[in-house]
Design a protein around this nucleic acid. Structure first.
Lengths: 209, 209
DNA sequence: TAAAATCCCCCATCTTTGTGGGATTTAAAA
DNA sequence: TTTTAAATCCCACAAAGATGGGGGATTTTA
């Protein structure tokens, strides 16, 4: 049995949801509020919710800023963000603040139920388009931040490339074999997403390295 | 026998020079004037000077602007500019106007005599520091201006190279054969004194093209 | 009008690059 | 201590680049 709370100001969305969750026998429907303020007024709560469905575009305290507040009072509660827009920035702000799911309001009711269950079981339910963005985010994080960072050796080689030196010359300068230089250059190309020395030089001069 | 005229306003320089030249038996000392205006008033002249020593910093009509005027009236006369400063700009203005020599006023008298003779024989007497500048000038002219100027086509190709494009791609973009692109690239390399695309890119980004 | 530039194309040859593997060593982190 | 990240080196092959020729066409300019 999973207890669920809802904070949603739009009646047309709130009511059907309330109706639907009420009749589910594996879900214990808890409180429903129209604003964060109202929700917090009901504290302390008799039944601590396992899951909170939180609208992101609330009047007064926004759902986004509510996350931290609520997480502090209900650390065990999984928060699923509920929104009409899939604004990239808000998604990550929400996830960083501690939300564990992110659903679009056009999600079918039974999908929402599944999401609630998934969240309660430490899952991370999110609409496909949201999920894609999250993936991309980590993709970038992995490729721009971690994997695009050049090692000292690679930087050194980039400098020689910018100087217009050939593999042979660079190898001589660094007392390495040509193959070593080629090996590093290959990795540099992968990290910078290029495939020629000229592109490396251009990137270097644009300060993109 | 070489006839020499002088236009020099500073007495301390004019007089020793006059004295010295007067006693030379291979030099026919002509007129001496303190200004261009005064010099021109003596026209028409009975003896046309082979050489005119012309101060550059004269009051009234400057020596610099006098060159063209005098050259028109005395096209056969070699003009030696006489100056205390070796201002780069003036040197070239003078040479462009038709001066054939350029001496600093600290030049020893016997050197001046040699310069007069040299000028009369279609030489180009000039003080060492002046000469150096002239050499540099032509050096730049030859390498930076005339021979390093890229044709429109070449510039176009440079842009593609900077974009990291291969010969094949450039050829496709410009509707030329690869060979044409290679031909132009060869010429670009010669003009820029480089021998690889990476060097071209580097130069381009440094604004050296 | 006759040089001088500029542009277009082709050939041949050799070097350099770009790419895809794989192997070893070493130092640092887990 | 095992895993991981970095660095080192090697092989091989196809593609691209660099270099030196040559032959024309057209346009500028002296």
């Amino acid at each position: 049995m999973i207890s669920v709370d809802i904070i949603e100001d739009v009646a047309d969305i709130r009511n059907p949801l309330k109706e639907f969750l009420s009749i589910q026998n594996d879900i214990l429907f808890g409180s429903i509020s129209e604003s964060v303020e109202e929700y917090l007024n009901n504290f302390p709560k008799e039944i601590l919710p396992d899951v909170l469905i939180l609208d992101i575009g609330l009047p007064g305290i926004s759902g986004l800023s509510a996350i931290e507040i609520i997480k502090e009072k209900l650390p065990e509660t999984e928060i699923i963000m509920f929104t009409v827009h899939d604004e990239p920035g808000k998604i990550f702000d929400a996830l960083k603040s501690g939300a564990s799911g992110y659903l679009l309001k056009n999600t079918p009711l039974d999908e929402i139920k599944r999401a609630v269950i998934e969240a309660a079981n430490n899952g991370a339910p999110m609409s496909p388009s949201i999920a894609r963005q999250v993936i991309q985010y980590f993709d970038k994080r992995k490729t721009v931040k971690e994997s695009e960072i050049l090692t000292p050796k690679e930087r050194q080689i980039v400098n020689y490339i910018v100087d217009g030196q050939s593999y042979k010359m660079i190898a001589a300068n660094l007392n390495n074999s040509i193959e070593t230089i080629k090996y590093h250059t290959k990795n540099i190309y992968k990290k910078l997403h290029v495939n020629s020395k000229t592109e490396v030089v251009a990137k270097a001069f644009r300060g993109e390295i």
